[in-house]
């Protein structure tokens, strides 16, 4: 029985009177890949940002391993070191090369010596297949390459868990494959991952569990087989049917 890395209880987020999500319960076990799906505007991205405290939740609790990170007096910067995040728009540091992007956190946050950090950063770039682009600036890289640097930057911190916020949504169709391939490899290597995505092929193939969210709550969760072939709710079936129809053509190409 693998142990939980992230445990979420009754998590709630509101902006004013607008409830983004309410009473979310979620457990992410070591080595699991959890894929969160659902219509846009249902709070998936906000949920992800609450998990590493980039956004403050209004209620509920989160544990990272045995540590409650929503407790008062938590060192948020320390928590974020251990939770990697990959963004929809890559968000690389535009003034730094690929290598420097990966290195910055190692040197400034982990206080690793320059040389060691450089070696480690190059290792991570090699892991995502971009060692030959180490000296390139973000503007000189394709979207797919930028996103892989983004993944390497997060991986370099040796996080306990990686959060992916629609990592392929801003990419041209022909660039999606290379990013999903890196993610697939990560999942196989045993990285614990929480992925918000519309890539149903990836979800079906890689996810240990799929979570279907709508209107700020979890409608249904289960194995890919359960959700794709025996969904409990019509709403799940409807959504999956629609999204597969929409993205199916694109997936056939990749």
């Amino acid at each position: 029985m693998s142990k939980p890395i992230l445990t979420v209880k009754q998590l709630t987020k509101r902006y004013g009177s607008n409830t983004i999500f309410e009473n979310i319960d979620l457990t992410v076990n070591e080595g699991d890949t959890i894929v969160i799906i659902g219509p846009s505007g249902t709070g998936k991205s906000t949920l992800l940002r609450c998990l590493n405290l980039l956004t403050k939740p209004d209620g509920g609790q989160i544990w990272l391993d045995e540590l409650e990170i929503t407790a008062k007096g938590t060192d948020e910067d320390h928590v974020r070191q251990h939770i990697g995040m990959v963004f929809q728009n890559f968000l690389l540091f535009n003034h730094l090369t690929a290598l420097e992007n990966v290195k910055l956190g190692l040197v400034r946050v982990k206080h690793m010596p320059e040389k060691e950090a450089e070696t480690k950063a190059l290792e991570e770039l090699t892991r995502v297949g971009l060692a030959d682009r180490a000296g390139h600036y973000p503007g000189q890289l394709s979207g797919g390459q930028q996103q892989r640097v983004g993944i390497a930057r997060a991986l370099a911190m040796d996080p306990r868990v990686m959060l992916f916020d629609e990592p392929t949504s801003a990419l041209d169709p022909e660039l999606i494959g290379e990013v999903l391939e890196v993610m697939r490899k990560l999942a196989l290597d045993g990285m614990t991952m929480v992925v918000v995505t519309h890539e149903m092929g990836f979800a079906r193939e890689v996810a240990d569990r799929i979570v279907f969210m709508e209107k700020g709550s979890i409608v249904e969760e289960g194995s890919p087989d359960d959700l794709f072939y025996h969904p409990k709710y019509d709403r799940t079936r409807e959504f999956l049917w629609k999204i597969t129809e929409l993205y199916g053509k694109k997936e056939a190409q990749t």
């Binding site: 910067d77 968000l91 997060a154």
Partner: peptide, 28 residues
């Protein structure tokens, strides 16, 4: 905004994010 968020996500403090990410870009 976004660059700040990316820096914080790596575990940098607000001051570090300003110093190493925001400042060098805003000066340019």
């Amino acid at each position: 905004g976004e660059q700040m968020m990316a820096a914080r996500a790596v575990g940098m403090s607000k001051m570090q994010a300003i110093r190493y990410v925001v400042l060098p870009q805003m000066i340019r």
